[in-house]
Structures are given as C-alpha cells and as structure tokens.
C-alpha cells in the first residue's frame, strides 16, 4: 500500500497525537507539585506512549515499506507529523498541563469508545483498552480543572488563563478530510464531527463546576492534520529525535 493509503494516514494522525503528548508529559516527571502527581504524570505519559506505539507500529505495517514505529517517530520532520495542534502546545504551568489534558481526554474518550467497535479489529482491540485509560484520565484532569477553578483566587486566575490559551487549538481535534470520510464509510474510523457533542457537553459541565468560562473570542487555529503546525513542534521533535538520528542503523 502507498503512503497515501487513508488507513495509514489515519493511524499516523492518531498515533502522532499520542506520541507528541507523551513526549511533553515525559518532560514533567520530577517537576510536579506533589510526589503522587509525579507518579500520576508518568502513568498518563505511559498510557499515551503505549497508544502511540501501537498505532505507529500498525501504521508502519499498513504502509508495508519496511519502516517501524521508531522510523516513523524519529525520522519524520515536522511537516510530516499529523497530530492536531493542541497536542504540541507547551506544558506551561500545572493549569496549562491540566487544561490541555482535559481537552484531550474529552476528545479521546468518545473517540476510543467509537473505535472500540471499528470494523478494523486491530484498531478496535487497541481502542477498547485505550477507552478505559482515557476515561480514567478524564476523571483526573476534570477533577483538577474543577479544583483549580474553584480553589483559590490565584488558582482560578491561572486555570482560566490556561483554558483561554488552549481553547483556540481545540477545533483542530475535529478537523476532517477525505481520509476520515473514506474510512467512516468503511466502518473503520469515527467521524470526528460526531465526537463534538460529547466534547462540548463535557467541557460545558466541567467548566461550570469549576466556575470558569470559555473565551468569547471564536478564533481557532487548525492545520495539524495536514502537517501545518505551530512553531512549537519544531522544537519538540529535534530533542526527541537527536540520539536516534546521531547513530543511524544501530540497535538500542
């Protein structure tokens, strides 16, 4: 199959989402506000990394060109990455980390629940496990959004600032083109637009609980699915890829 195979591109999109997020979360280990949160961030990182590996390994197989998960992760440049732009947004303070995670979780829960019944059994098997992980993540991240939103004056200010900063990157989660439409018709993919009601309802309910509001500015930044990223990805990838690229063709 060619690299333009819709399934290959779809798997890259979902795999890159998780890889880029895992890369960011991995950098947070040992920096969290409590020891329990160091352990928790490592857990969430490992879940996303596990999902990324499964999806990228499967993508490489679908492509059939002799690449593997590490080739795909380490040797593609930023224009070839297909993650939505939300995932590459920086860790920022704890409120930013949690806002990013919350928006991701509110998107991935219905995504994986939908994919759990995909006609593609490989995808369905992975999604059944990932859905459990995402539900757990959502419980944790929404708990922090509420706690920080309805905590102290400072935490509320920071949490609102984080929601404002990250909200403009959420529409990209639901971007779709012929890749999705072909696969939706075959019962393989989930239509991104169908995830929006769960996402919107979850965001509305949690923000209300947190005494927070969505920004009134409707501006949204998209393009990640076509490899048009924010400038941040160009800093994240070289760090992740440096060692692999410095010693080509060896085993690690």
């Amino acid at each position: 199959m060619s690299a333009l195979d819709p399934l290959f591109t779809y798997l890259l999109r979902l795999g890159d989402d998780n890889l880029v997020l895992a890369q960011q979360l991995g950098a947070l280990v040992s920096t969290m506000p409590e020891l329990e949160l160091d352990i928790a961030v490592a857990n969430v990182c490992l879940d996303h990394l596990g999902q990324a590996r499964y999806l990228l390994a499967y993508a490489a197989e679908v492509e059939g060109g002799g690449r593997d998960e590490d080739h795909l992760a380490m040797l593609r440049d930023e224009r070839a990455f297909r993650n939505a732009v939300l995932f590459e947004q920086p860790n920022g303070d704890f409120a930013h980390t949690m806002a990013r995670q919350f928006f991701v979780d509110a998107y991935q829960v219905p995504l994986y629940e939908g994919l759990a019944t995909s006609a593609d059994l490989r995808l369905a098997t992975m999604a059944q496990k990932a859905a459990q992980e995402s539900r757990y993540h959502l419980g944790s991240s929404s708990g922090w959004v509420v706690r920080l939103g309805d905590g102290t004056t400072q935490s509320r200010r920071r949490m609102q600032a984080a929601v404002n900063a990250l909200w403009p990157f959420t529409a990209d989660l639901f971007s779709a083109d012929e890749v999705e439409s072909v696969l939706v018709a075959e019962g393989i993919a989930v239509d991104p637009a169908s995830l929006r009601p769960f996402f919107d309802d979850t965001v509305a309910a949690v923000l209300a609980d947190a005494t927070l509001v969505l920004p009134s500015d409707a501006y949204q930044r998209t393009g990640g699915r076509q490899g048009l990223h924010t400038e941040l990805l160009g800093h994240l990838l070289p760090e992740m890829q440096s060692l692999y690229r410095a010693h080509r063709g060896v085993q690690w």
């Binding site: 890369q23 490992l46 060692l243």
Partner: peptide, 17 residues
C-alpha cells in the same frame, strides 16, 4: 525526552516512576 527508541522511552518512564 531523548531516549533512543519508543520502547526505551517507555521502560525509562516506568523505571523513574
């Protein structure tokens, strides 16, 4: 953040955890 493969990255995160 610089582990040379995704498998090594996962093992290292788990170990540090």
């Amino acid at each position: 953040t610089r582990a040379p493969s995704l498998a090594r990255k996962a093992i290292l995160v788990a170990k540090v955890q």
